[in-house]
Write a protein that binds this DNA or RNA. Structure first.
Length: 626
DNA sequence: AGCTCCCGCCAGGTC
DNA sequence: GACCTGGCGGGAGCT
């Protein structure tokens, strides 16, 4: 069954084996690198090995990619790498075994991953689902090419060749290529052919994406969705409420996608399809990280934003699930690129998968007023789809955006207007907190801290180079520039690197949940629970009528499989973040805090709800490092 | 049980 | 019409 794959797609498309039958036998741990590790870890280990090798390649260390070389030929400067790839590519080994070819130089001869008696078992296990993961496949793919290719050499990629040599269906290669293309790491040259760019354009692309993300106010969208999610979460009559809130989004239901292209149904259809493409999704997903502070994005939030939260109702739950699936695909590739890393956000409802940005933090300032579209369009223009990722430079919005998202932004703006005129207005809050009129000494002190942080936050940005901030501000519309004028440029000085912004809170740290929509005052509470410190987030408005009002929330960030669930270096490093303006500090925003913020926000217009939001301590904010 | 995501069907697009 | 591209969701493997 494992016949040689021809150039033709038909053969590639057909599975070479009966995966499910084989899978059923894959019930034991196996290894590629570390024989004693369990199944999952083994794959991770092999990925890590590949990654390490890939790293070792370094820039310009792999002059040729040897694309057209047969799979058994060593990649000249990276033969060692190939060995590792093969170690992680059981199918290649299987194929080699079956063909009884290449006994001398074949990879399996160099990969001592199992004892002879284990051979058969491992061979079965080699077809493990994990071994076929998109992430691992991407590692293998990336290992074939240098990060910074020599423009002089042929950097063409043949999908057929890649699919054949990696022994996967071409379909899988498309997934990888789409994500890579979204980052300008490859560009489509022609049918079946791509050009490898590596990371040459990556930083610039990311900068563009960041800028576009800001222009699209994805940070605010995230915040908004979190808030609404919290509202739902803490509503006693959640279901009815959910419907209420869904309608409160001013949603346009299923029509949103069709509206993307205006009245032209055909264009709408095309645009809808494009908008769902892995490329667009990937870019938007990356944008979320780039504009988020801390740079942690849960799949749930991402999916909601990518869908437009309005779709998450009834039968559209399926859409959500599908989106999540796609996000996993994207995330796997991005993980292979080391741009993100999987973490978990533990909330009341349990652990939620999330990803943390681990890619470059200091992005170059996008040149001029160019948009991401220019960057993308500057590459191969063959793919019109990519062009549609961004609107023309002249337009304000950088990206094609769901109509629902436009409305979402509108909703945010409305909220902001309300908030700014409401007692819970951030400005008012900070002013009040500054004079401490309504608080105890401790409250006043904390409020002062909060004010300071708010001032910093209101600068709108934390770690970016100043010029980039300026660009972002210039390029964006009123939303961003609405930020209070009290911004102090000097506040940027103390800002640490992006990762330092992540609110892993060691003892004593006071996280500030910066959100324009829900100003929260962090208050340390004398709570001694294992695992770290706790902060109580107090909404300023709740402090006045209910000085004891607390809104606390538990949230744990942890790395899957991380042994160190407590304070990590990252946590320690972030211990100073009390003074770090978390800009749009969104991610760790306590759900209950947000909930409270939303509730209280709505109080202005609905005093009757006041009773329902009687001060209550929800949970404790507990951050663990990954 | 829920999370993760492989797999391949099949529709739309391109040649 | 053949082939390319990739959205999509079923359902298996994993935790």
């Amino acid at each position: 069954m494992s016949s040689t794959l021809s150039e033709g797609q038909k053969l590639i498309r057909k599975p070479l084996r009966s995966p499910f039958k084989e899978r059923s036998e894959n019930d034991k741990g196996h290894v590629f690198v570390e024989p004693q590790t369990p199944l999952k870890n083994s794959s991770r280990a092999s990925e890590a090995a590949l990654l390490e090798s890939h790293k070792n390649m370094g820039p310009l260390t792999t002059p040729t990619k040897g694309l057209e070389a047969p799979s058994s030929d060593p990649w000249t400067p990276t033969s060692n790498l190939k060995m590792l790839i093969s170690a992680a590519s059981p199918e290649i080994r299987n194929r080699e075994k079956e063909r009884a070819v290449d006994s001398g130089e074949s990879e399996n001869s160099q990969v001592s991953i199992e004892s002879p008696e284990q051979g058969e078992e491992v061979e079965k296990l080699q077809t493990s689902r994990k071994d076929k993961s998109l992430g691992l496949l991407c590692y293998k793919f990336l290992a074939r090419y240098p990060n910074f290719p020599n423009p002089a050499v042929n950097n063409n990629i043949s999908l057929d060749d890649v699919a054949t040599e990696l022994n996967v269906e071409r379909r899988r290669i498309y997934d990888i290529m789409n994500v890579l293309e979204s980052l300008n790491m490859v560009s489509r040259l022609a049918k079946n052919r791509y050009t490898w760019h590596g990371r040459v354009k990556l930083a610039q692309t990311l900068a563009m994406l960041k800028r576009s993300g800001k222009e699209n106010r994805y940070d605010q969208l995230m915040q908004q969705i979190r808030q609404r999610s919290l509202e739902r979460e803490f509503d006693l009559d959640g279901e009815e409420k959910e419907n209420e809130e869904m309608s409160g989004f001013d949603m346009d239901g299923d029509s949103s996608q069709a509206e993307l292209s205006g009245a032209d149904p055909k264009a709408a259809s095309a645009n809808s399809r494009k908008d769902k493409s892995l490329r667009v999704m990937s870019q938007k997903f990356v944008m979320l990280f780039l504009v988020s502070s801390p740079p942690v994005v849960s799949l749930e939030i991402a999916a909601k934003i990518l869908i437009g939260e309005d779709h998450i109702v009834d039968q559209d739950k399926n859409k959500f699930k599908t989106k999540i699936r796609r996000l996993y695909d994207i995330a796997n590739v991005l993980s292979s690129l080391e741009l993100i890393k999987k973490v978990h956000v533990t909330e009341d409802r349990g652990r939620k998968p999330a990803f943390k940005w681990t890619g470059p933090e200091d992005l170059p300032s996008p040149k001029g007023k160019g948009t991401a579209s220019q960057l993308l369009e500057s590459r191969s223009s063959v793919d019109s789809c990519a062009k549609n990722l961004f609107s023309s430079p002249g337009t304000k919005r950088g990206f094609t955006r769901h109509h629902s998202l436009v409305k979402l932004v509108k909703s945010i703006q409305d909220d902001r207007r309300k908030i700014n005129s409401a007692p819970s207005s951030p400005v008012k809050m900070t002013d009040e907190s500054a004079n401490g009129e309504f608080y105890t000494n401790k409250m006043a002190h904390l409020a002062a801290i909060c004010k300071k942080q708010l001032d910093e936050q209101s600068t709108g940005h934390r770690i970016q180079p100043k010029n980039e901030v300026t660009d972002a501000l210039n390029g964006s519309t009123s939303q961003v520039s609405e930020l209070p004028e009290s911004t102090s440029a000097s506040n940027h000085q103390s800002l640490g690197p992006l990762r330092m912004q992540f609110p892993v809170l060691p003892t004593g740290a006071i996280p500030y949940l910066s959100t324009k929509c829900s100003p929260i005052i962090p208050v340390l509470i004398p709570q001694q629970q294992a695992g770290g410190s706790y902060a109580v987030y107090m909404h300023p408005t709740s402090l006045r009528p209910h000085p004891t009002s607390l809104a606390v929330r538990s949230m744990t960030f942890e790395s899957p499989g991380s042994a160190n669930k407590k304070t990590s270096p990252a946590a320690t490093a972030s211990s100073n973040q009390t003074n770090q303006p978390s800009s749009h500090g969104k991610e760790p925003t306590s759900p209950s805090t947000l909930k409270r913020a939303c509730e209280e926000k709505s109080l202005a217009g609905s005093p009757s709800k006041l009773q329902r939001i009687e001060p209550k301590v929800r949970l404790c904010e507990k951050y663990r490092a990954w």
